[in-house]
Amino acid sequence: MPNNRTTSASGSSRRHGYFWVEAGVLLVFWFLMSGKFDPVHIGLGLTAVGIVMGLQHRLPIGPRDKADQSLMAHSFRFPLYLPWLAVQMIKATWQVAVIVVSPRINIDPCLVEFRSIQQHSVAHVTLGNSITLTPGTLTLQIDGDRYRVHALTSRNADDLLEGAIPSHVSRLFGGSGEGAVCEGRKFKHEEEA
């Protein structure tokens, strides 16, 4: 986990270049949203971008170490992730709909714990989100690389532990997908020591 952010000379100069990239992206986004190019709107846009850039240097975002650079290099794959996620969400909705509409609610909730090796903390966030939106699973806690997940049925828990989703996220961020699920176990909360 990249916690020790350094402010070395090379780090700040790379940071400096990134400042203009970010300001440019924000300004383009402003024009996309406003769609107007008269002096008033351009002035408002420049002011808004100025205020945001003045405030954002406090936020720990932007490439500051190797892991962050690798994240930036893989960010172009992110739009590919959304359609995959959309398909998972429709499946998940269908499953919950079938459970809710059937006369007798047929669920068997259990908990799942596992460790997942991912390249970057953003990959962990993405995996947590993906688990929440995929069929029958809900991320309860992420502690470093340890996950605790609530599963609606025993079958959903088994599907998660098979590891298709964690390794998909791992590959999305340039990982090998190896170790995406390890030390996995499924249990009922009464059995917890």
């Binding site: 998940a92 909730p109 939106l133 809900l138 309860l140």
Partner: peptide, 12 residues
């Protein structure tokens, strides 16, 4: 938790 399953995935 089970209600959250309904509220999260389905509403989204």
């Amino acid at each position: 938790f089970t209600r959250t399953h309904a509220a999260s995935k389905v509403d989204t």
